[in-house]
Design a protein around this nucleic acid. Structure first.
Length: 520
RNA sequence: GGCUGAGUAGCUCAGUUGGUGAGAGCGCACGGCUCAUACCCGUGAGGUCGACGGUUCGAAUCCAUCCUCAGCUACCA
């Protein structure tokens, strides 16, 4: 494989990051890191969506300019991602000058083409939604169900995008590309929505909303979210109607847009329509993930159970984000909702990362030092009975990632860990050593260490810090591509000294958990 | 109302096109081991596989009806 381009949704900076935002970035980062192990040229885009009336209003309430407000919140997103080791290649903000300029050009191009037209209408406008509502959307009292406010009757002339023109083509594309929308069962949902689609309004009157990108040659209108926000996926890498960058040519079409299930409609219908209108190739995949619930309850501000990603790291006293990354990435089956609870988090992470995986490396290296002074003798190499299992796991993990089954892939890795732990117990190197069967003892330990190298590579996307610690102790090259990954990674000679053997992840003990409970 | 998905051991879930006594992980209990991060390995607890029918020699797995949950989406008022 050559290149791999992956994006997250860009987050609206009206608030600070919570665990739902983090979930998506972690998933995407795991996907991204996995593909860096398979491709030469990879790119990971994330960022923030910064225009619109909500930001205009919130910043006004705070008495600061919208830009200042955005700067502040965008930074808090960047800070959070840093703490989670989200290794994005670029962080785009829709207020970036370059983005704004290209969005204006895109708008103009569609206007010139006739795919955007002006249309006057009267409707019920809810400023909270920043959208027109139809009567049937309202409550019995005639209020907006989301904002409990009475919408105003507004007469407005806006620009509309001819989405209906592309309706049939979009339907056909979805039908003929079963892996376009993933998980595939969500495609039915989208096809259903397509039946009732209408042209979408893509501008707002400047008198209602001032914090947006102006339409060129029209002082009355500003560009609304669809063309502004969705375009980030192409403007960020240098798309330009007048001639795109080499980076864009190398990366587009995107391999996968990772998004939440709530915005699938916008990505699989609106965005696809826009791309068709721009004569650009379509995304290879759109992956809609589920939600993270907290203790089986939906996270929401009104319930007051919004959790920030970093508060989990702090309350458990974690110095590395790996456990949280691992838990997030493996707790929800592909595309479905997952749940977070403190107990479950601690349980899973202790069991998999500390007890099984970490301890396996630790016990094996300890024996190598105890029985062989940390040396691997030439005769220990090349007779690995676990090769087949390891190779099968590599295959299975790659296969799962092809379908963005991140949790399922993680499960396979831990299965290999379990198999290897059992192999150690079954072969009891400590007994072999006592019996003086040193050759066999060395072979067994080396076999395990070879598999540990494989595990190190496979776990890396989930736990980059732990993987690095493992690779250090194994003198293993973590840059090894998965296609070249075998069970022959070690060389004969001295591997490690006793003082360099370190647990890669310590159990979170009950004391810490209690402390976390108190904070909560 | 329609459509889609889901309801399987305490918890989280696997269960291809129906067929040896219904599974995994975690948790729990007991046993083993002692290299290791009180870790690992083994054994067990008996869950009417949402409900009631039906098809079949035989269904968790197919069909009908119903209940619950989640999501998408109408229509009548």
């Amino acid at each position: 494989m050559g290149k791999f381009y992956v994006t997250t949704a860009i987050d609206y900076v009206n608030g600070v990051p919570h665990i739902g935002h983090a979930y998506e970035k972690i998933l995407t980062d795991v996907i991204y890191r996995h593909y860096t192990q398979r491709c030469e040229n990879t790119f990971f885009l994330t960022g923030t969506d910064e225009h619109g009336i909500k930001i205009q209003k919130t910043s006004a309430e705070k008495g600061i300019s919208p830009k200042e407000f955005c700067d502040m919140n965008a930074q808090s997103f960047k800070d959070a991602w840093k703490k989670l080791d989200i290794g994005y290649s670029k962080f785009i903000r829709t207020t970036d000058e370059e983005h704004e300029k290209v969005v204006q050009k895109i708008f103009q191009k569609l206007l010139d083409k006739g795919d955007i037209y002006k249309h006057a209408y009267t409707g019920l406008y809810c400023s909270g939604c920043e959208a027109f509502l139809s009567e049937k959307d309202l409550t019995e009292d005639g209020l907006c169900p989301d904002h409990q406010k009475k919408p105003e009757v507004v007469s407005e002339e806006n620009y509309f995008f001819k989405l209906t023109k592309y309706k049939d083509a979009i339907i056909k594309h979805i039908q003929t590309h079963p892996d376009f929308i993933m998980p595939s069962w969500r495609a039915t949902e989208v096809l259903n929505q397509l039946e009732h689609i209408e042209d979408i309004s893509v501008s707002r009157s400047k008198s209602n909303v001032s914090w947006n990108i102006p339409v060129l040659n029209d002082d009355e209108q500003g560009i609304y979210v669809w063309i502004d926000a969705l375009s980030n996926y192409i403007t960020a890498i240098g798309y330009d109607p007048d001639g795109s960058s080499d980076l864009f040519k190398a990366l587009w079409p995107v391999d996968v847009h990772v998004i939440g299930k709530d915005i699938l409609k916008f990505h699989s219908i609106y965005w696809i329509g826009i791309l068709m209108a721009l004569d650009l190739p379509l995304p290879k995949h759109i992956f809609a993930h589920g939600w993270i619930t907290i203790d089986q309850t939906k996270m929401s501000k009104s319930l007051g159970n919004v959790i920030s990603p970093t508060s989990i790291l702090e309350s458990f006293n974690l110095e590395i984000p790996d456990p949280l990354r691992y838990y997030m990435a493996t707790s929800a089956p592909c595309g479905k909702d997952g749940n977070y609870s403190d107990d479950d988090f601690k349980e899973k992470v202790n069991a998999h990362l500390a007890n099984s995986m970490g301890n396996l490396l630790n016990r094996t290296l300890s024996m190598l030092v105890k029985y062989f002074d940390g040396d691997i003798k030439p005769g220990f190499l090349g007779k690995n009975e676990l090769t087949e299992q390891a190779v099968n796991t590599i295959k299975a993990v790659k296969h799962h990632f092809d379908y963005f089954e991140i949790a399922e892939a993680g499960q396979k890795i831990i299965e290999l860990v379990d198999i290897t732990n059992k192999y150690v117990t079954d072969n009891a190197p400590w007994t072999l050593a006592k019996e003086g069967n040193m050759e066999r003892c060395g072979v067994v330990l080396t076999n395990v260490l070879e598999v540990m190298c494989v595990i190190t590579s496979l776990i890396y996307p989930y736990c980059p810090n732990i993987a690095r610690s493992m690779s250090d102790q194994l003198s293993y090259n973590l840059d090894t591509k998965l296609d070249n990954l075998t069970c022959s990674n070690l060389k004969s000679g001295h591997l490690i000294d006793k003082e360099n053997i370190k647990p890669v992840f310590l159990r979170m003990d009950s004391e810490l958990a209690d402390k976390a409970q108190k904070i909560k």
